[in-house]
């Protein structure tokens, strides 16, 4: 039951991440990537199986959880943060350069044209 629940959770995190990544504006895409990285981290962690009250500290308890996926996930969490930061700043940069927050940059929806008009000299 716990296994089923965690599998479901990982699936929902991934699915929600995928849905958001397919959106057309940058901010939801960043949210989607973050959700997906939660899903991936949990997936990797779960590969060591779920153990309760068995931290991977020598001598603390009789049994120990699998330490290897934990070590992998620990760095993955930090790297995911760096990636999120990089992508969101890229999005800011794109917005400054292109005047909109569409992922393609080239597509300028009506709403964001205001900024472009401000930059151009008045006709």
């Amino acid at each position: 039951m716990t296994n089923l629940a965690i599998s479901l959770l990982i699936g929902v995190l991934t699915g929600a991440g995928v849905y958001l990544v397919l959106r057309a504006q940058t901010f939801p895409v960043v949210l989607g990537l973050t959700l997906m990285s939660y899903g991936v981290n949990l997936f990797l962690f779960t590969m060591g199986r779920l153990h309760t009250a068995a931290p991977a500290v020598v001598g603390a308890t009789e049994q120990s959880a699998d330490a290897l996926p934990q070590a992998l996930v620990l760095t993955a969490i930090v790297i995911a943060f760096a990636m999120t930061a990089f992508v969101i700043v890229l999005a800011l940069k794109a917005r400054a350069a292109l005047g909109n927050d569409h992922v393609d940059g080239t597509h300028i929806p009506q709403a964001d044209r205001v900024i472009d008009r401000r930059k151009e000299p008045r006709a």
Binding site: N3, L4, I6, S7, L8, I10, G11, V12, L13, T14, G15, A16, V18, Y19, L22, G39, F43, T46, M47, G48, R49, L50, A56, V58, S64, D66, A67, L68
Partner: peptide
Amino acid sequence: GIATGIGGGIAALTYAIISRPFETISGYFL
């Protein structure tokens, strides 16, 4: 639909893996 498909696939994959018995290689590190 795509999100559901991929999420469902990942969930099934996770469950298929963790419901199997397994031998950890972490014994060495311990």
